[in-house]
């Protein structure tokens, strides 16, 4: 059982974060950031060409992080692989000792840097969760026997800002039935959003890890607001007035974590390239 999986099964608070693989093969910067996170977080998500922008394989990065003693969470999306490639990568991850898999559909190619690419979506996330559970039984989707059986700790995503919220909750219930043991959410900014969401998911038989986003600049906050993530006006004002917006963004993250940490299973920090500040944020939030 992976360290992350053990943590999920304990009653302890869960802390995860994510790092973005680079476009290219130079991992110097990524490894520097990873070093700062070692021993601080319970799991590090490695994104899979997020925002549909082509980047180095997360499986390769997960493997390297694991060798360095970190606990990777391999993000596996449905956008770029058919069911043959998905199963193949799941087996590959298992052989590399990577058990933690976060399954998601993946941003559509048209919003990324290869908008001409053919979208695959052969399996949807629910079907992929089920597929991973099928592999654990020692057979593949075609019913053929595997030589060596994998073991996974499976997660999925949810969006607390989605309206109607009930639709997301129904999806989460379906994903739990399909095999999800944990959820990592889209970032929340407004306490109201968190409370409404938490009320509806507290009975789910899965750990729900709430994402906290580091608003490192006013511009970024405005952009997030525009794409519908509803940043409270108060935060925008605080960032506007601040001499050091990054520091103010950290203050906001710390405040949010303190507000929610006693009511949720864990937090997931999205620092967008500022991962070196994660230890400080956690320390100030008394985690």
């Amino acid at each position: 059982m992976s360290r992350f999986s053990e943590r999920l099964k304990s009653k302890k608070f869960i802390i995860t974060c994510e790092i973005f693989p680079p476009k290219g093969t130079d991992l110097t910067n990524l490894l520097k950031k990873a070093k700062a996170l070692k021993g601080i977080v319970d799991g590090v998500n490695v994104t899979d060409s997020q925002r549909a922008i082509m980047r180095i394989s997360p499986l390769a990065v997960c493997h390297i992080l694991k060798e360095k003693g970190l606990e990777p969470i391999f993000q596996l999306i449905c956008r770029d692989r058919n069911r043959i490639a998905l199963q193949s990568d799941l087996l590959g991850a298992s052989a590399l000792g990577i058990e933690n898999i976060l399954i998601l559909s993946g941003d559509h190619p048209t919003i990324g840097d290869h908008p001409e690419a053919k979208p695959v979506y052969d399996l949807d996330p629910v079907q992929l969760l089920k597929t991973a559970r099928v592999l654990e039984k020692g057979v593949d989707l075609a019913g053929r026997r595997l030589k060596g059986t994998p073991k996974f700790c499976l997660g999925a995503v949810a969006n607390p800002s989605f309206e109607p919220l009930e639709l997301q909750v129904l999806m989460m219930e379906k994903k739990v039935r399909a095999g999800a043991e944990f959820f990592q959410t889209q970032p929340i900014f407004a306490l109201r959003t968190f409370k409404d969401f938490q009320k509806k998911v507290s009975k789910l038989e899965a750990k729900v890890i709430i994402s906290i986003f580091l608003l490192k600049s006013l511009k970024l906050a405005q952009l997030m607001d525009e794409i519908g993530l509803k940043i409270p006006k108060e935060y925008l004002k605080r960032l506007e007035k601040a001499e050091d917006p990054l520091k103010e963004g950290m203050n906001i993250a710390v405040d949010l974590i303190k507000e929610i940490k006693n009511e949720c299973d864990g937090v997931h920090l999205m620092a967008l390239g500022k991962e070196e500040y994660i230890p400080e944020i956690l320390k100030r939030a008394n985690l």
């Binding site: 559509h108 048209t110 949807d124 996330p125 629910v126 309206e163």
Partner: peptide, 18 residues
């Protein structure tokens, strides 16, 4: 847009596709 059969992704805003 993704041809998902088991429900929506989280990308829609105000009922509109991403």
């Amino acid at each position: 847009a993704k041809g998902l059969l088991n429900g929506p992704c989280g990308g829609a805003r105000d009922g509109k596709c991403e």
